Amino acid sequence: MPEGDTVWQAARRLHSALAGKVLIRSDLRVPRLATADLTGRTVLEVIPRGKHLLTRVEGGLTLHSHLRMDGSWRVFANGQRWTGGPAHQIRAILGNAERTAVGYRLPVLELLRTTDEDRAVGHLGPDLLGPDWDPDLALANLLKDPDRPLGEALLDQRNLAGIGNVFKSELCYLLGVTPWLPVGHLPADRAAKLPELAKRLLEYNRDRPIRRTTGSPSTSSTPGTPRTPRTPRTTNRRVPDLFVYGRAPRPCLRCGTPVRIADQGDGSRERPTYWCPTCQRGPAPAPTAPRRDRPRTAD
């Protein structure tokens, strides 16, 4: 599930494969870009901005892409078989003499003037993994609408950029409040910790192939958590990677209460949200039946 850490990893792979090299293949398979040709241009850099990817190309152009739920960029050595989905799901191909980057199921793909990048990402709040990170501004953005549920406010990329559904659930758990708690009801001490805790979680995971919020299996510590989790009762088993996300109805790692699940939001998109009714204080809806969750993709 692409969130800020996953997109940061994708940008690093693309930058390593493409930056500083001349494109000898360019195929953008969306109708309005069907005639666009980037061959002969050098890729300058690939950078993440929240959940967005910006591939800057010689000549003042930027290829903007967004992965949303199912998109991915994969990098292959020339001559290597492409894997990532059927050919009809390919939306972009960028290749040089050594590597080829293939974009599958990209719901957003547009070619912009680099000077016009704000059209695509100018609305975003401070980036948790970016040079513009400003914890005070992020917190001020979150508190602008004190009646808004915390989980919804965290997902609003205009407040702070990079948090998705997994980190939303995990962050609320570590703060000890439900995702339905109004932002304005968040205790002051926990509100003050929120921006830095969110940043630590994403920084801890940006170099990891498997997302983890429960810390080292040997210590059960969590980077930046304001509370220390108990070691699971079955100590001869590996500590789960996540505290609550995807774990309903299994027991909470702290208290043993079954983790619950319910959708959050206006219903326009499926937002399965997980919480522990004992460890997290605040309002919550009736739980729904557990579902099979998609594994995290490393793309």
Score class of each variant (00 low, 15 high):
1 M>F: 04
7 V>H: 00
8 W>P: 01
13 R>C: 10
15 H>G: 12
19 A>V: 14
20 G>N: 11
25 R>A: 10
27 D>W: 09
29 R>N: 11
30 V>L: 07
31 P>V: 04
33 L>T: 09
36 A>G: 13
41 R>F: 04
43 V>M: 08
46 V>Q: 07
51 K>T: 03
56 R>W: 12
56 R>G: 06
57 V>A: 07
60 G>L: 15
60 G>W: 12
61 L>Q: 15
64 H>I: 02
66 H>R: 00
82 W>Y: 08
88 H>I: 14
94 L>G: 01
94 L>E: 01
98 E>T: 10
101 A>T: 06
109 L>M: 09
121 V>Q: 01
125 G>A: 07
125 G>P: 07
138 A>R: 01
145 D>Q: 07
145 D>G: 12
149 P>L: 06
162 G>I: 01
163 I>A: 12
164 G>E: 00
169 S>F: 04
176 G>Y: 08
181 L>K: 02
185 H>D: 14
190 R>M: 11
191 A>H: 08
194 L>E: 02
206 R>N: 07
218 S>G: 15
219 T>H: 11
228 T>W: 11
229 P>E: 02
230 R>F: 08
242 L>P: 09
242 L>V: 03
244 V>W: 00
244 V>T: 08
245 Y>H: 06
246 G>V: 00
250 R>V: 03
250 R>T: 13
250 R>P: 12
251 P>F: 01
253 L>F: 02
255 C>L: 09
284 A>S: 11
286 A>H: 06
